[in-house]
């Protein structure tokens, strides 16, 4: 969260996150190199780099794509989400090393342009077995480049969260391209059960996690809609006691995605969608009197939905009342940043 754009908004958590990430990457590269030298002692340094970076980038992308559903299924994984951006950019850089070394090793000694050679050296585009798998890796790298280049709040603001998110959802296409890059490349060449197991396990894990998370979300949404009961424009949401202190209850009423927060003996309702990357505000908590988005720490005041000065982000607010200990919410939104009185919880 920043008023002005800075290249990287460093803080203690991000430094710690990055140090752990780099430590694991170095450990992986050293282990991979050691095993390659033990089992394939004649491997050239270029091949070693290509293999080590290729496998590392694929594992990292796989891990990145698991973070979202894991965080939705279990909030203990939310810290992984906090600095996923650095993980993504690093994945692109590792993938780029793999791509550049491949082009140098396999395409730079001919008579044609090396990039042209990637597309033209093997033209069996109609064959699954002999498909030019390097082309798939090339396009996946282009997508990862676009994502890394726009992985900044400057682009998020200027492209708008909607278009930015759509662009970054291309990562799923990149993952699909990379699955086939491996399956039609090294797997066809070496027929190693290890590669098949490596890709297959990752693919099944990823698809299962995403479908499980989607199922849980859908069920939660349906439960919210079933519970609500109409009364003078207000919907009964839950008992005030059902909302933990400094936490929220999320409801979906008349197309409005609402987070009802309980704090200091009061209840307030704001729009559930963070203005940064459309994160779920209601899955966050109140820190220092501010609602704090669980994704990247954007903050809002519960009574008016405004970010504390000097920040300018604002959320819509809603009327709330408490009758006989039950919380009622009117889903007609007030303009962003409108102050609404909090409902007092009677002792």
């Amino acid at each position: 969260m920043s008023v002005n754009y800075t290249t990287v908004q460093w803080n203690r958590q991000k430094r710690r996150y990055d140090r752990i990430m780099l430590g694991i990457m170095v450990l992986y590269l050293l282990t991979f190199t050691f095993l390659q030298l033990v089992f394939y002692p004649l491997t050239s340094p270029e091949t070693l780099i290509i293999r080590a970076t290729g496998t590392l980038a694929f594992i990292m992308l796989q891990f990145i794509l698991c973070i979202g559903p894991l965080a939705r299924l279990d909030h203990r994984f939310l810290p992984l989400l906090y600095n996923r951006r650095h993980l993504g950019v690093t994945t692109f850089l590792i993938g780029a090393v793999h791509g550049v070394f491949n082009v140098i090793q396999f395409h730079s000694l001919g008579y044609v342009d090396p990039i042209f050679s990637v597309f033209a050296s093997n033209t069996h585009y109609a064959s699954l077995q002999d498909f030019p798998f390097q082309v798939l890796g090339f396009f996946a790298l282009v997508i990862l480049f676009l994502m890394a280049a726009t992985s900044h709040d400057f682009w998020l603001k200027n492209l708008s969260p909607r278009w930015w998110k759509s662009l970054h959802m291309l990562v799923y296409l990149a993952y699909g391209l990379l699955v086939f890059h491996v399956m039609l490349g090294v797997v066809q060449l070496e027929q190693s059960p290890m590669w098949i197991g490596f890709v297959g396990f990752g693919l099944l894990t990823l698809v299962s996690l995403h479908l499980m998370a989607a199922g849980v979300e859908k069920k939660r949404l349906l439960e919210q809609m079933d519970k609500a009961a109409v009364g003078e424009g207000f919907y009964q949401v839950c008992s005030a006691e059902d909302i933990p202190e400094n936490r929220a209850k999320m409801v979906y009423l008349e197309g409005q995605n609402i987070a009802v927060f309980r704090y200091d003996g009061k209840v307030s309702a704001v729009n559930n969608i963070c203005r940064h990357q459309h994160g779920p505000i209601g899955e966050g908590k109140i820190v220092d009197g501010c609602i704090t988005c669980p994704w990247h720490g954007y903050q809002y005041l519960p009574q008016n939905g405004q970010s504390p000065p000097p920040f300018t982000e604002k959320l819509e607010t809603y009327d709330v009342k408490i009758v006989d200990g039950m919380v009622w919410v009117n889903p007609s939104p007030y303009p962003e940043g409108t102050e609404r009185p909090a409902a007092i919880i009677q002792a």
Binding site: Y172, G176, Q188, V207
Partner: peptide, 21 residues
């Protein structure tokens, strides 16, 4: 995306194994 993409990826994965030399 994951309902459709998951099926397509799994089918493609199986096809790639099917054509292994």
């Amino acid at each position: 995306i994951w309902q459709i993409g998951g099926v397509l990826l799994c089918l493609g994965f199986a096809a790639a194994i099917w054509v292994l030399p």
